[in-house]
C-alpha cells in the first residue's frame, strides 16, 4: 500500500485543565513522520489526556499541528477526517457487527448518502488488505464481540488503517495480551509505520524496549525526558520517577 504523504505531529505549549486541576501543563512534543513514539509515565502523568486533547475529546490551549493543519478547536469527527486515528484502553469495536462490517464502517466516513443507502455487495479492497495486515482474513464473517481480546485490539488498529488515518494514537494496545500477541502487535506497528506516524501509550517496558523508535516520558503533566530508549533509560530523573533505579540496568 502506498499511503499518502507522511506527516509528523507537532505539539506546542499544550495545556489541559479540568476544574482548576492542570492535567497537561504546557507540553511540547515533536513526533517526526514515520516514527513509533512511545509515551510513558506514571499514572496521572497526562498521557491519555494528551491524546484526548489532540483528538478533540477535551478542550486544550496551545497548538497541535499534524503536517500543516492545526487540530485544536475542531470537532472530534473533523479531526478524525484529517487523518488522526485513535484507539482506547478498552478495545472499542462494534461487538454486534462482524469484523468485515466493522472495517467497512471505518473505511466509509466520506461515503455519500447514496452509497450508504445501498448494500455492500463485496468486500472493498482496502478492507481486504486490512484484514490481511491484521491477520483476521479468515475471521471476516465473525461477530467482533466473539473475537479474543488481542484480536479486538488488532481489529481496532485495522479500523484505523482502512479509515486512512496517517497518525495513529494507540492507548495501551498490548494491555492484557499474551507474549505471542505482543510480538504480533509489535510487528504490526512496524508494518504500519512504513507509511504512517505512530504514537503509543504503553506501560509494558519490555514491549517498549523492543519496538519504540523514540520515547517521551511524561510526569505530572510535563515532559520529563525525551530521546531513544537508551537515552531515556540512562536519564537519572526518569529512573527516579518512573522506571525505578533497580529495573533500569537489567535491560
Amino acid at each position: 500500500m502506498t499511503g499518502p504523504q507522511l506527516d509528523g505531529l507537532c505539539v506546542r505549549g499544550l495545556r489541559v485543565t479540568f476544574d482548576g486541576f492542570t492535567a497537561v501543563d504546557g507540553i511540547d512534543l515533536d513526533v517526526p513522520p514515520g516514527d513509533i513514539r512511545f509515551l510513558i509515565g506514571p499514572n496521572g502523568a497526562g498521557k491519555t489526556t494528551v491524546v484526548d486533547a489532540v483528538t478533540g475529546l477535551v478542550r486544550a490551549t496551545g497548538s497541535a499541528r499534524f503536517g500543516d493543519r492545526e487540530l485544536l478547536g475542531r470537532d472530534v469527527h473533523r479531526i478524525a477526517r484529517l487523518g488522526i486515528g485513535r484507539t482506547f484502553q478498552t478495545a472499542s469495536v462494534f461487538e454486534e457487527l462482524t469484523v468485515v462490517q466493522n472495517l467497512d464502517i471505518a473505511a466509509g466516513a466520506t461515503r455519500n448518502w447514496w452509497t450508504l443507502a445501498r448494500r455492500r455487495n463485496r468486500i472493498p479492497d482496502e478492507v481486504a488488505a486490512a484484514l490481511e495486515t491484521i491477520g483476521l482474513t479468515d475471521r471476516g464473517d465473525q461477530l467482533a464481540g466473539a473475537l479474543a481480546h488481542g484480536q479486538k485490539q488488532w481489529l481496532e488498529i485495522g479500523m484505523l488503517l482502512v479509515s486512512d488515518a496517517r497518525l495513529l494514537l494507540l492507548d495501551e494496545p498490548v494491555a492484557g495480551m499474551s507474549h505471542e500477541e505482543r510480538d504480533a502487535t509489535g510487528a504490526l506497528l512496524e508494518t504500519v509505520s512504513r507509511d504512517r506516524t505512530v504514537v503509543v501509550i504503553e506501560h509494558d517496558m519490555d514491549f517498549l524496549r523492543r519496538f519504540a523508535r523514540s520515547v517521551t516520558v511524561l510526569h505530572a503533566g510535563k515532559v520529563l525526558s525525551e530521546g531513544t530508549v537508551a537515552q531515556v533509560q540512562a536519564d537519572p530523573r526518569v529512573q527516579e520517577v518512573y522506571l525505578g533505579v533497580d529495573t533500569a540496568p537489567e535491560a
Partner: peptide, 12 residues
C-alpha cells in the same frame, strides 16, 4: 453501540 467510537472514525 458505540457513538463515541463512530465519532472518532470521522462520522458525525
Amino acid at each position: 453501540d458505540g457513538e463515541e467510537r463512530v465519532r472518532f472514525l470521522g462520522y458525525d
